Amino acid sequence: MDNSPTALFDSYESDFKQIIHSIRDKLEGDAKDVGQGEQRKAALRRVEMELDEADEMVSQMEIEIQGIPQSLRPSYQSRIKASKADLTRYKKLSKDLHAQLSRAELLARPGLPGTPTSDEPYGATSDRTRLLAGTELLEDGSRRLLESQRIALETEEQGADILRSLRGQREQIQNARAIRCIPLSSSLQRADTSIDRASGTLKKMIRRMYQQRVVTAAIIVVIVLLILVILFSKLVC
């Protein structure tokens, strides 16, 4: 058995090269075969598992290099760098093949809305359908806007009620102070703090409501513009 300080490193590197060779064969073979969908999927799954194994081998090599003498370490560091470059390249290639397979499956999937067919060469989604969908979106946006306005008004009313209640409590404290002649500055300060805090919270709530109203109005404007574009293109054609 080889007990040299580089023996384990060499062993891990050898395993890494074997795994990379297997990955390369799969990526250039079954995983790249456009005509075999299921076979490509299986090959890519095996590639993913082998990439994980190769990554583990690189990690072990990085651990073992710590025990290699300083005089030998630079050359082994270069070998690790080369191994990482190979691993990165094949990870990218695997990712690209995954993306190609996903696009191919999406394009080949039957019954997608708007996909041209022999019966409907311009797609299943007609101008009338798009117009109706835009109208529904416009109505839904209008309902959302009205609901936001209603919530904002209710929030304002609730905020006003809370402020009136807090002011009433403050007046009661002030009256009690005047009658009993007992210093209640700390109570008044707490009441003032509560009022300020409540006012700030209510202002934030109202500001959020107005922001939601603006966003909803912007969505409605975009939908209206989309409908106008569809109508204009319909009239021009």
Rank of each mutant, 00 (worst) to 15 (best):
Q60Y: 09
L72I: 10
P69R: 12
Q60C: 09
Q66D: 14
L51G: 04
S94N: 08
K84P: 05
V58M: 02
P69V: 10
S59H: 09
L87M: 02
V58L: 04
V58G: 02
V58F: 01
S59E: 15
L87N: 00
A43F: 00
S75Y: 11
A54V: 00
Y90D: 02
T88R: 11
Y90C: 00
P69L: 05
E48C: 10
I63P: 09
M61V: 04
A85F: 10
L51A: 06
T88V: 13
R46C: 09
I68W: 03
E62Y: 02
E48R: 04
K84C: 03
I65K: 06
K91G: 03
Q77G: 13
L93H: 08
E48S: 11
K92Q: 13
V58N: 01
R45H: 14
D55H: 05
H98E: 12
G67E: 14
S94W: 03
D86A: 12
E56Y: 07
R73Q: 08
Y90A: 02
I68R: 02
L44F: 00
R45M: 15
D52M: 13
K91C: 08
Y90V: 02
Q66C: 13
D52V: 06
A43D: 02
K91I: 04
E50L: 06
R45N: 11
L51Q: 02
V47C: 07
S59W: 07
E64M: 06
K81G: 11
Y76K: 02
V47Q: 00
Y76H: 06
I68T: 04
M49N: 15
E50D: 15
E48V: 10
S59V: 12
R73C: 03
S83T: 10
Y76N: 02
D96V: 05
M57D: 05
E62T: 06
D55R: 05
E53D: 14
A43E: 00
E50F: 08
R73S: 04
D86T: 13
D86G: 14
R89P: 10
M61Q: 03
K91M: 09
D55C: 06
I65R: 08
K81N: 09
Q70L: 14
V58C: 01
